[in-house]
Design a protein around this nucleic acid. Structure first.
Lengths: 189, 189
DNA sequence: GTCTTTTGATTGAATGATCATTCGGTATTT
DNA sequence: AAATACCGAATGATCATTCAATCAAAAGAC
């Protein structure tokens, strides 16, 4: 993970362009132009367009986890930890819609498939999983597979974020709070 | 909406290819080959690739609504109607994963934006909205904007369908039932 | 400190592939 | 014979990627 100025600039340009125009609407020539870099330079940092997209996604994922960790209390009550994660997710994506658009496109494209499978095999003790493991042990939530719990917890949030970004709803902090709480209702045993 | 054999064949080929390779990985030449048709023929039925993709989506949406209507009782209790819709959605997408992959890619691409906005303006009395309107009037569900209700109701289902299709969970009818019920828990006031 | 040398970074025009679309013509239907 | 459906090679654009040439900076030599 080297991080020259130009490397980051290229990733940033990729995220912006892909978010707006999709993978196929984002030629390397445009990425180069927006990053203020020559086309050839991209290939100094990334093997191919696919590799660039993969790296851009990894970059976003790191940023997202970092932003969730801000103000997160590992020792607090389970429901409060859940609410924090939910709020952080929505707030962050609403503040940076491009990140959301890129990530969602990635997840629903052939790129994302392999990536998601890898993550499932081996990720045990990350921040989020452990909230649900604790909740399960305390008998607070339903006895369902972890992935189903994930779906109930975050599925609705992704949708309202998308609706907000596309201007179909206007989220405010009250509505966000109520929605995250409703997600918790879905989990409660 | 004419429906020649070839027109349908082209749409079918488009859905299959896009589901597997994405929009940018589905050249018209391949669509033609898979549909058993000459490249030029596609342009007899569709103005452009964009128009073809738009029509393919519309086709899928009609099919989906038709399949939900099967066995649907307009007069039954609200919760039962909701459970029926949820089950139908999951069953249908699991039976035809290509449909799901196409639709999700569409929704998260620049194509889908306009389409979604149009639908929001003017759709009042469709099958699904009226379930939630009835539920609201009976005081059964939370007082939240319709789009948030949609998100809570169907967001989790979309995620577990994706996980199932990618082989990350194995859904059976028990798990589907429990998940749809949990979605209802999120809605309950 | 100044002058080479070497290494890595950067450039952007050139290359070759691939793609959406067109069109002149052939088959099929009316 | 008129109209419509269909074909597939040809066209022109666009794109990812390469590479020979320039530039920058660090390392060594004296």
């Amino acid at each position: 993970m080297e991080s020259t100025d130009k490397r980051i600039a290229v990733i940033q340009a990729t995220i912006e362009l892909v978010a707006e125009y999709g993978f196929h609407g984002s030629p390397m020539s445009q990425v180069a132009k927006r990053a203020g870099v020559a086309a050839g330079t991209i290939y100094h940092y990334f093997e191919s367009k696919d590799a660039l997209i993969e790296s851009s996604y990894a970059h976003l994922e790191e940023e997202l986890i970092a932003s969730i960790k801000q103000g997160y209390c590992e020792e607090g009550p389970v429901q409060e930890r859940f609410m924090h994660i939910g709020r952080a997710l929505v707030d962050n994506f609403i503040a940076f819609p491009m990140k959301f658009c890129f990530i969602e496109q990635f997840h629903n494209s052939p790129y994302g498939v392999a990536s998601r499978r890898e993550k499932m095999l081996g990720k045990k003790n990350d921040l989020i999983s452990s909230v649900f493991e604790d909740a399960r042990q305390q008998g607070l939530i339903k006895e369902l597979p972890l992935l189903v719990i994930f779906a109930l917890a975050f599925g609705p949030l992704l949708i309202i974020i998308r609706d907000h970004i596309f201007g179909l709803v206007q989220l405010d902090s009250f509505l966000i709070e109520e929605t995250v709480r409703a997600c918790w209702d879905a989990l409660k045993s």
